[in-house]
Design a protein around this nucleic acid. Sequence first.
DNA 1: GCTTGACTTAGAGCGCACTCCAAGCGAAAG
DNA 2: CTTTCGCTTGGAGTGCGCTCTAAGTCAAGC
Lengths: 138, 138
Amino acid sequence: MDEGLTIAEVAESTGLTAHTLRYYERAGLLDPPPRGMNGHRRYGRRDLDRIHLLTRLRSTGMPIAELRRYVELIRDGDATAGERRQVMIDHRAKVEEQIKQLTEDLALIDYKISIYTEVEEKHARVLSRDGSDEEEVA
Amino acid sequence: MDEGLTIAEVAESTGLTAHTLRYYERAGLLDPPPRGMNGHRRYGRRDLDRIHLLTRLRSTGMPIAELRRYVELIRDGDATAGERRQVMIDHRAKVEEQIKQLTEDLALIDYKISIYTEVEEKHARVLSRDGSDEEEVA
DNA sequence: GCTTGACTTAGAGCGCACTCCAAGCGAAAG
DNA sequence: CTTTCGCTTGGAGTGCGCTCTAAGTCAAGC
């Protein structure tokens, strides 16, 4: 029957490249999937779920090494649920901190936009009045 | 009078290292500051403001190359205020997208935490029914 | 039978952002 | 005077996360 998706299909549907999928496998983030009779990888639902989780954790800044550690806990079964939960709780705090920081940075960017809007207007006035202009900090 | 902060003081107060400050200067992100009679850099208020802005933009994911472009606009004076404003507006959208994505990821993390909490509880029940209590529940 | 195309592997290479090294200099302390 | 300290420089090195290359296998289509 030879079920499952090819590496190209998984790449397409996850946004990762085939190269990256093989790299994740080598790095211990993905279990080696079964192969078709041609020796090609065949990914199943489990693999896709794992890849999805990995990409989300990566995009929140979790490094490969910690993902590997987490995946090893998964392989050790239910007994490590507590540890995995702790990994997630710790990571959650980091993500919240990122959001907090980004929100502050957004305010700074808005401030900058407002300053530039002002400067632009002043500049336009100065130009139309044919006067001289000033300097600016940053 | 030799005013201003030394590179070590600026490093201390900004969280960057002296190495990174020199690197930013080489990379065109910081204007070469004036030197004291010993040839050492002397940073002023302007420099600190710029460094602060740079670190905030860096932490929101703006690459060095784009920061350099932005700094060049600053050097070109008020006439580029519109362009700088546009840089900020474009970047703002990216930061908002990051926050949106992180918020979604936070929900996934919370979901994972809830699953692990469940698994843990089930596991604990199984263990207590067994009478074997060698597992710790952190 | 030959070509094409998607896959396989081990291993090399790359881009980014630092991060550090080696050698040297001027001022101050011992 | 000599050592120590904080800085100076050009340039080399590092760590991370991919990203790509080269050479090979296999199945299908012309």
